[in-house]
Amino acid sequence: MLKIGDKEFSSRLLSGTGKFRDKNDIKKMLEKSGSQIITIALRRVNLENPQDNVLNYIPKHITLLPNTSGARNADEAVRIANIAREAGCGDFIKIEVIHDAKYLMPDNEETIKATKILAKDGFTVLPYIMPDIVTCKKLEDAGASVVMPLGSPIGSNAGLQTKSILEMIIENSNIPVIVDAGIGLPSHAANAMEIGADAVLINTAIATSSNPALAGEAFSLAVRAGRMAYLSKLQKQSQYANASSPLTGFLNL
């Protein structure tokens, strides 16, 4: 089971509500993928053209993970977190502090600040970060419930470009590590789980596929396969062959 804060989850696939062409696909995707946690964002209502509230499309048993996207510093992230909690979304919060428009890289320093404040205030904090061991330790000390290092830039589908650092983080972390951002294929997700990630968060790859329910199911199978591979301690690669059959000749024993 994946334990985050005081909740336990059987699914290790976290999903997101961004970029769906048809919001009705969200529910079907959740059913097929088995994902139990989904991200949402908060924004000012566009008064000229009010948007549909995405909460209307998410079944009640799903754990909501509001993100602080749009926040450019710790104070803004804290404010968004408080609005989300007051609005009845529970106390899970994904901290996302970004002011780099080109690569959408998170600001680890501001993220640590926000984590300190929100963890003290009773939130279950899931910070989205640039993979860095020192940051992860500081987040642990600050009361983060998990760390969510990125695999590659948000929405890039580029996979685990940060793999060697992710491996170091996983080896040293005392809290769950969830690989967030950049996972574009089920094989990327499986790979993240094989190296020992506790879970993955996938939004773009699922939401922008032509069949989000099917894609969600594919990712969920990959996550399970990768997890089982990790638990079964598969052996490392070798440069040379290693016979699987006895090396003696057929008849001369």
């Binding site: 769906f20 991200t39 949402i40 924004r43 008064l47 509230n53 509001p66 996207s69 939004n203």
Partner: peptide
């Protein structure tokens, strides 16, 4: 006054 809603996001 701020009026806020929930939208899709990752």
């Amino acid at each position: 006054v701020e009026i806020i809603t929930f939208l899709g996001g990752g």
